[in-house]
C-alpha cells in the first residue's frame, strides 16, 4: 500500500499525530480570520521553514501543491479582475499555505499512527460511537483496496479477450457483483470467527 508518508528523523515527525491534526485545525480556522497580507506572509514563511525542519525535499513539497496549481491560477486571474492584484495574491497565498500545512502533516505522519489517532479521538465518544466497528471498517477497507484492484484488473483482462474492454458497463457489472459476493463471504467468515457485532453493545450494558 503506497502512502504519502515521507520517512525521516525530525522534530515534526516526532510530534504525536493527534496534536498535529489539532494544530492544523487551529491554523485553518485562524487563517480565515486573518485579513492582513503581512501576517499571511509570515505564516507562509513559517510553514515553508517547517518543511526544511522536516527534511522534506523541495520536489516533494512542490508535488503537494501541483494538483492545485491549475485551480489556483484560475482563481488568481478571476480575482485580479474582481478585487484587484493584492486581494488575488492574498486569496491564492492563503490556499497555498493551507494546502502546504495540511500536506506537511500528511507527509510526516505514518498512516498507522494517523488511524490510531483517529481511533483514540473516537474513543472519547465511545458511549455514542461503536469504536470497535469503525476500527474494523477502517482496517477492512485498507485490506480490500488491493484485492478489489486485482479483481478490476482480472475483469479488464477477461473483457479484453472478448473485445469488450471499452464497454464501461461490461467492466463495471462483473466487478460490482464479485465485490458484493466477496463481501458476503467475508462477513460470514468474520461471524464464524466470533466477531459478534450485534451483541457488542448489549454485552457492554449487561456487564456494567
Amino acid at each position: 500500500m503506497i502512502s504519502l508518508y515521507h520517512p525521516a528523523q525530525s522534530l515534526i515527525h516526532s510530534i504525536a499525530a493527534g496534536h498535529k491534526v489539532l494544530m492544523l485545525l487551529i491554523l485553518g480556522t485562524v487563517l480565515f480570520q486573518v485579513d492582513r497580507l503581512e501576517i499571511l506572509v509570515v505564516v507562509a514563511v513559517v510553514v515553508v521553514a517547517c518543511y526544511g525542519v522536516a527534511k522534506i525535499p523541495f520536489r516533494l513539497a512542490f508535488k503537494q501543491l501541483k494538483p492545485a496549481l491549475f485551480l489556483l491560477a484560475i482563481i488568481f486571474l478571476a480575482q485580479i479582475f474582481i478585487l484587484g492584484l493584492e486581494a488575488a495574491i492574498f486569496v491564492v497565498l492563503r490556499f497555498a499555505v493551507l494546502i502546504l500545512a495540511a500536506s506537511l502533516v500528511t507527509l510526516t505522519t505514518m498512516m498507522s499512527h494517523m488511524i490510531e489517532a483517529i481511533e483514540k479521538g473516537l474513543s472519547i465518544f465511545g458511549h455514542w460511537l461503536p469504536v470497535a466497528k469503525i476500527s474494523l471498517a477502517l482496517s477492512l477497507t485498507v485490506r480490500f483496496i488491493p484485492v478489489i484492484g486485482v479483481m478490476a484488473e482480472e475483469v479488464r483482462e477477461a473483457q479484453r479477450v472478448r473485445g469488450m474492454e471499452r464497454n464501461v458497463f461490461a467492466l463495471a457489472m462483473p466487478l460490482i457483483i464479485r465485490t458484493l459476493k466477496m463481501g458476503t463471504e467475508v462477513a460470514e467468515a468474520l461471524d464464524a470467527r466470533g466477531f459478534d457485532s450485534d451483541d457488542e453493545t448489549d454485552a457492554k450494558s449487561r456487564t456494567s
Binding site: 491534526v21 503537494q64 492545485a68 482563481i75 490556499f95 502546504l100 500545512a101 495540511a102 500536506s103 502533516v105
Partner: peptide
C-alpha cells in the same frame, strides 16, 4: 490525498 484536499477550493 492527505488533509490538504479538505481545505482546498
Amino acid at each position: 490525498g492527505g488533509m490538504g484536499v479538505f481545505s482546498g477550493a
